[in-house]
């Protein structure tokens, strides 16, 4: 059964991840599940290794993440978050669970469906990131994605903590302006 699922995979970049999740949710579609695994697992692995996990632990976290994705697919709501956001959040919580033995809450999001604000689009976020200069980008990247504190970033970059803080402040100001959220 597993072999068939695996061998019939055709990877098309057009595959819409939200539709793949829907196929997992509605039909327990293992082929859709495999495509999702193949697109996101290698990225999660890079992220986990950067965050200090050993390759074995990283793979355990990835397995647990995808097990949860399979089980919770019916609860995924594309209006509230993108697939990448959803997967990132699940993986982040599994990572904290594994590395720190702490329980991180799942965010319960009920954004008003008035359509006035939908920040979770790749286009907006990419546009916003483009306005950052290299130094600001580095601070945001390391802070948001690698989970480093301003103190750790300052040490790595060889600059004062105050410098990191002001880069972060300016970066957020720019991001907020482009993404149209109040400070």
């Amino acid at each position: 059964m597993c072999k068939n699922v695996y061998e019939t995979i055709t990877e098309t970049p057009e595959n819409n991840p939200a539709l793949l999740i829907a196929r997992v949710a509605n039909n327990q579609d293992k082929q859709a599940f495999v495509i999702l695994f193949k697109s996101y697992a290698p990225k999660l692995k890079s992220w986990l290794l950067k965050g200090g996990a050993s390759p074995n632990i990283a793979e355990e976290i990835i397995q647990e993440t995808f097990l949860t994705l399979w089980q919770k697919a019916p609860l995924f709501n594309p209006e509230k978050a993108s697939v990448a956001t959803w997967i990132y959040t699940i993986a982040r919580n599994k990572k904290i669970d594994k590395l720190r033995q702490e329980h991180y809450p799942e965010l319960i999001v009920e954004i008003a469906s008035d359509g006035t604000h939908n920040p979770d689009t790749k286009k907006d976020v990419r546009k916003a990131l483009k306005v950052l200069n290299a130094e600001q980008f580095t601070v945001i990247y390391k802070n948001f994605f690698e989970g480093q504190t301003h103190q750790e970033i300052a040490k790595q970059e060889g600059v004062a903590l105050g410098t990191v803080k002001s880069r972060a402040r300016l970066a957020l100001k720019k991001l907020h302006a482009v993404l149209d959220i109040s400070e």
């Binding site: 996101y40 990225k43 999660l44 992220w47 509230k80 978050a81 993108s82 990448a84 956001t85 997967i87 990132y88 959040t89 982040r92 965010l107 999001v109 954004i111 920040p119 979770d120 689009t121 790749k122 907006d124 976020v125 990419r126 916003a128 990131l129 945001i140 990247y141 948001f144 994605f145 991001l175 993404l179 959220i181």
Partner: peptide, 11 residues
């Protein structure tokens, strides 16, 4: 939601 989408974009 914005902060999570930034992290997801980096991912």
């Amino acid at each position: 939601a914005v902060y999570a989408s930034l992290a997801a974009e980096f991912l």
